[in-house]
């Protein structure tokens, strides 16, 4: 049994993060942007777990635990905000949300 090199996981995480970043920049539907952000958070989690494996230390895994909790809080509050915005403006297209511009 030959273990997979840790750097492969890091490369995969980099690719996932780049895909998520491209999505967050190009999509204009608020929910799709949120999904892209979750993707980036997951890529960061994968990096942390990979380094925890390489260093033989649990700290990275503890941080991933906290990241998951914060992501849950972020999703709940963000989706509630989108519901509130949708109720007022009948759209969640981020290009049309310009109340706070200037």
């Amino acid at each position: 049994m030959s273990p997979v090199p840790v750097s492969w996981y890091l490369l995969l995480a980099a690719a996932l993060f780049a895909i998520g970043a491209a999505g967050a920049l190009t999509r204009r539907n608020g929910i799709s942007i949120f999904l892209s952000i979750e993707l980036m958070l997951n890529a960061a989690n994968l990096t942390l777990v990979a380094y925890a494996r390489q260093l033989g230390d649990h700290t990275g895994q503890v941080i991933v635990f906290f990241v998951m909790a914060v992501a849950a809080a972020e999703a709940a509050v963000g989706l509630a905000l989108f519901i509130a915005v949708f109720r007022n403006r009948l759209t969640i297209d981020v290009n049309r949300m310009n109340l706070m511009r200037w």
């Binding site: 750097s7 490369l11 993060f17 780049a18 895909i19 494996r53």
Partner: peptide, 29 residues
């Protein structure tokens, strides 16, 4: 622009990890 930025970003990350070598990591205990 976003696609280009993502590709460049990914390339930098890959370069970074490539230079770090390919360690095998600790064996799972």
């Amino acid at each position: 622009a976003a696609l280009l930025g993502a590709v460049v970003f990914a390339a930098f990350l890959v370069l970074l990890f490539w230079r770090a070598g390919s360690p095998q990591g600790q064996p799972l205990t």
